[in-house]
Amino acid sequence: MKKLWDIINKENIKVLYKDFSHLPENIHGLYFYEQRIGPLIVLDKNLHHSHRLHRCVLAEEIGHFYTAARTNILTVHTSANLQTIENQDERKAAQYATDLLIPDSELIKALESGCRSCFELAEYFDVTEWFMYRKLGFLKMCFRRTGLKVKGRDLFDIAMQPCHIIS
């Protein structure tokens, strides 16, 4: 968490904790740019009870800061184009977050040390299993861009190199 708080302090991002129990259950954090105070991350106060989820959500909201969200999740989108843009924004923020908490070079080390499942990798990186699946999904997309069709289980068996070296 120190790495994440260092980024927040360096970028002067404000962080607030609020009760999100009235929101849909899959919303744990929101990123805004508020004119008067600047960048703002609002997190569900219940994240204090789930260290791994807290790290993952905070990293993704920092990802929104760096990838400059182009839509507002609080606005109902009646356009399929706006919904597509929102999905792209979410993917970019998630990719930033997974790269931040699970760098490719460290993932290779974890695989070389014997981690052979998403559960073991999630333990190794102190993230949720869903977050680890997300990272592996981004790696599969990276390999596909190079022409390799890779299944998730293959990521544990192939000699992997960081995506930025392959592409």
Rank of each mutant, 00 (worst) to 15 (best):
H48C: 04
L40Q: 03
R116L: 01
R116N: 13
R91M: 03
H64C: 13
K92P: 02
A94W: 14
S21V: 06
F131W: 13
S79R: 05
C163S: 06
L30D: 07
I62V: 08
L40P: 02
H64Q: 10
D104Q: 01
T98I: 02
S105C: 02
S79H: 05
R145C: 06
L53Y: 07
I37K: 01
S79G: 08
L101Y: 01
L58I: 11
V15R: 01
A80G: 06
A80W: 04
I37W: 02
D6I: 11
S50Q: 05
A69Y: 13
V150K: 09
T146I: 06
D99C: 15
N12V: 07
H54N: 15
G114C: 12
N87K: 14
L139C: 05
Y96S: 04
L4P: 13
L4S: 10
L30G: 12
I108F: 10
H51Y: 12
D104M: 07
N12R: 15
Q35L: 03
A159C: 13
L74V: 04
C118N: 07
H49Q: 05
D19M: 06
T146L: 09
K45S: 02
C118W: 00
L43T: 12
S113T: 08
K151A: 09
I41W: 08
D89S: 02
F65E: 05
A80C: 02
S21M: 09
I27R: 12
L47T: 04
G137W: 00
A97C: 12
K151W: 07
D104G: 00
I62P: 03
H22K: 14
H54Q: 15
R116D: 05
L74G: 01
Y17V: 13
A94E: 05
H51S: 11
A110K: 08
A80E: 13
H64W: 15
R36Q: 00
S105V: 03
I41M: 06
K3T: 15
T75K: 04
K2Q: 15
I85V: 08
D44G: 04
C115T: 06
H54E: 14
E106W: 01
N87G: 02
G114Y: 12
V76S: 04
E86T: 05
S117W: 02
L74F: 04
